[in-house]
Amino acid sequence: MKPAEALSAAMPDAVEEAVEEGTHPFVRVKAERIVEAARVLREKCGAAMLHQVSGVDRPPDRMEVVYHFTRIAPDPAFLCLKVSVPRSDPVVPSLANEWASANWAERETWDLMGIRFAGHPHHYRILLPEDWEGHPLRKDYQYPVEYHGVDCVE
């Protein structure tokens, strides 16, 4: 079953946008319903793996988290869910308790983009050092001048 159909049938009030044609079909759902939506994808559309979690910065006022699930058999495909949160306070419920691969992927999104994941069991930075300030992949990121005495400006 296509994700747009499954989600409109199971939780029609949570679907904000559904694009089925083009190079990248996706369904945008409300942020607080993402865990339920992922469950619908697993049960109705056969999503077996959470392949990737990406954060996209959409200044001036939104940020997106894009989840790509994959169905293995039959009819292998990638299924995409998007979630949009306000940029001033980006919080999304965490999928890490149900999808183990979300654990590290969400940590990376927090680390580089600054989107918090409520309910994540181990919400720490993963790629950058613990004492790094800021979230580099944001579009308004200011590069640091120095880090522990090392000059960061060319």
Partner: peptide, 14 residues
């Protein structure tokens, strides 16, 4: 605008 690369070792190590 955004090129989010997925390296398989990231999930494999986890």
């Amino acid at each position: 605008y955004r090129a989010r690369m997925r390296g398989p070792s990231f999930q494999n190590i986890s």
